[in-house]
Design a protein around this nucleic acid. Structure first.
Lengths: 212, 212
DNA sequence: GTCTATAGAGGGATAGAC
DNA sequence: GTCTATCCCTCTATAGAC
């Protein structure tokens, strides 16, 4: 154990730092997480952290990047199984639940860190967008299969956006009730109704919204 | 102007501090907002800020409290006008849009600051919950009127929860696209479908959700 | 109530031995 | 790659004159 290839030592340390940084930053937010907190929690001195990542912002970018890559390899196939719409919708919602539960970092990071605004570096903002785009692309593709929307990409887009907003809103709700789950049932009803609505209404016959 | 009643001077300063603190904290988050930033932005020295609020946490609590009170007095009547369901739903969604656009502090604060977790004081957490409860109570009451759900409080509750989660999700989405609006249309369709679903299904006939 | 000045702690980041 | 030690800065909070 102790004579592990010296080559791996650095890699292991790097991962350990990323683990603790992911945990702390998703719980406290970027600004409230200090290098010394990370150092104390993972056992490595601050200088090692700087050697690996160069700056606090560098850690943040690396954390986001790794989270996205993990998410990408973990996302179930877009080829949602199921014979009819109901079955495919079930499959999709089940996959969504799994993603939501197994990868809370993503949503938490988007929440807890996204308010950097001006303070965030360009790379950090880019990584944040990449993470969101990954989720959107998956949801769009999967929902297109579920409702067979190959010829109506704008409907898939709307359904995906709606789904992600519901998921984000649930992540927010979790702060108040940590046990809050994704509430699959209303989402199922809403998605079916929305898909039906958009199929029946040939795009354009949108009832007035009422913006004086 | 300069000879304003000396009595008001303190009150005015207090309000000025709260204004800038609300702005800065909702943009950068609690941790990333420093006393010196507030001091520089509002022109008063740090010691005045401490004289008024005692601590940084005290500012946060006061900011939340004032935001909630402002919201409460601004919330439209729960007595949603309209002859039929469609009209009342329109009224409700319009009111929701106004609240969402005119009081972005609330959602932003819930987002930007809610990740305090352990670091937050008990009072801060209490205020945060009070803010959320205010919104929930309003949405619950209004939706009960819209769909005439006086005898089914659990349905009003579900609809309100769904509505607030959508709104929260939209607030999150705004970070990526600052112009993102509330997407009234899908919400309308979803709420109608949900209400109809719950009216037709006598509570209990919930299709399996699929948790192995 | 508002100011100047400052204490005391902790932040991010680096130097240089090993 | 990892360590100890440290620089410099900003932070929260307070003291005390006005």
């Amino acid at each position: 154990m102790t004579e592990a290839p010296a080559h791996d030592r650095g890699t292991r340390s790097r991962e350990a730092i990323l683990d603790t940084a992911t945990d702390l930053m998703s719980r406290h937010g970027y600004a409230a997480t200090s290098i010394s907190m990370i150092s104390a929690a993972c056992g490595l001195p601050a200088s090692s952290i700087y050697w690996h990542f160069g700056s606090k912002d560098g850690i943040y970018v690396a954390v986001l990047q790794r989270a996205r890559i993990t998410l990408e390899t973990a996302l179930p196939s877009i080829d949602v199984p199921g014979a009819d719409v109901a079955q495919r919708l079930d499959s999709f919602l089940e996959a969504l639940t799994v993603v939501f539960q197994r990868h809370p970092h993503g949503t938490k990071l988007l929440l807890g860190l996204s308010m950097l605004q001006q303070s965030a570096s360009a790379e950090a903002v880019a990584e944040l967008h990449r993470y969101r785009d990954t989720l959107m692309a998956w949801a769009r593709g999967a929902l297109s299969r579920v409702f067979d929307l190959g010829d109506r990409p704008e409907v898939s887009e709307e359904l995906a956006r709606f789904t992600l907003r519901t998921a984000s809103g649930t992540a927010v709700a979790r702060w108040f009730e940590p046990a809050a789950s994704l509430d699959i049932e209303p989402l199922r009803v809403a998605l079916r109704a929305l898909a039906a609505h958009r199929s029946g209404v040939p795009a354009g016959k949108t009832p007035r919204v009422g913006h004086p």
